[in-house]
């Protein structure tokens, strides 16, 4: 399984297929049983998550996991490293992507809507200026309009050259914006290919996109 710079790769599969576990393993949040995780030519199994952030991997978890007793601005600040001369430029970048977050800067994140909280989670990850972004179920709890907003931002980030790994239940929309797709089944890769082709594969459509034959 791989993702190249500038690519959007989606991971689809049923509930419990291992999508979240895959992302958590990459992020060093669960221990790997075997296999190898390589980032830019370096093996990163067992590396602490904060070190992975420093070398360019950022993670937006399922359920957002914001710091509840902090403001929007503080949450964003925590995404950037301690010494970060460009912190204001990075704030400007994420505010351009999500203008509403600038207005909400000094509100506690818990006062925001689900869609806005998802934006904070993505913006926090972007504050690390990652080379690769892992997104776990960004559609969860979002209205279709809010999800479209998130999708358009993912496309925009990707155009800047960031590799995006997208694990998503709303598989069809995820596949539409991705270059390639992996299908997970019981923790194994059951299929992979160009998203355009898989989207038109009757087997995939029947099994994962909820389309009858």
């Amino acid at each position: 399984m791989s993702a190249e710079a500038g690519e959007v790769v989606s991971i689809i599969g049923a509930n419990g297929a291992g999508k979240s576990t895959l992302l958590k393993s990459i992020m060093g949040l669960v221990r790997t049983q075997g296999g190898e995780i390589v980032f830019e030519g370096t093996r990163v199994n067992g590396v602490a998550p904060h070190t992975l952030v420093a070398i360019g991997i950022a993670y937006v978890p399922e359920g957002r996991r914001l710091f509840p007793e902090m403001t929007v601005r503080e949450n964003l600040r925590m995404g950037a490293p301690r010494r970060c001369p460009q912190v204001n430029e990075r704030l400007k970048v994420v505010h351009d992507l999500f203008p509403v977050l600038e207005e909400r800067s000094f509100q506690l994140v818990t006062t925001l809507s689900g869609g806005e909280q998802q934006m904070v989670a993505i913006a926090r990850a972007l504050m690390a200026k990652p080379k690769m972004l892992l997104l776990d179920e960004p559609s969860l709890g979002l209205s279709p309009i809010a999800f479209e907003k998130v999708i358009s931002v993912i496309e925009k980030i990707n155009r800047e050259g960031v590799a995006v790994l997208l694990a998503e239940q709303s598989s069809e929309r995820a596949m539409e914006i991705s270059d390639r797709t992996y299908v997970l089944e019981n923790g194994r890769v059951a299929g992979s290919g160009l998203s355009d082709e898989l989207l038109h594969d009757p087997m995939v459509r029947a099994a994962y996109l909820g389309v009858g034959t």
Binding site: M27, L29, A48, P49, H50, L52, V53, A54, Y59, P61, R65, L66, F67, P68, E69, M70, M78, G79, A80, P81, R124, A125, A128
Partner: peptide
């Protein structure tokens, strides 16, 4: 508030 979130946000917890 959330040590795991702190860790994957880049904080050396």
């Amino acid at each position: 508030q959330d040590w795991e979130a702190a860790e994957f946000s880049g904080i050396n917890t």
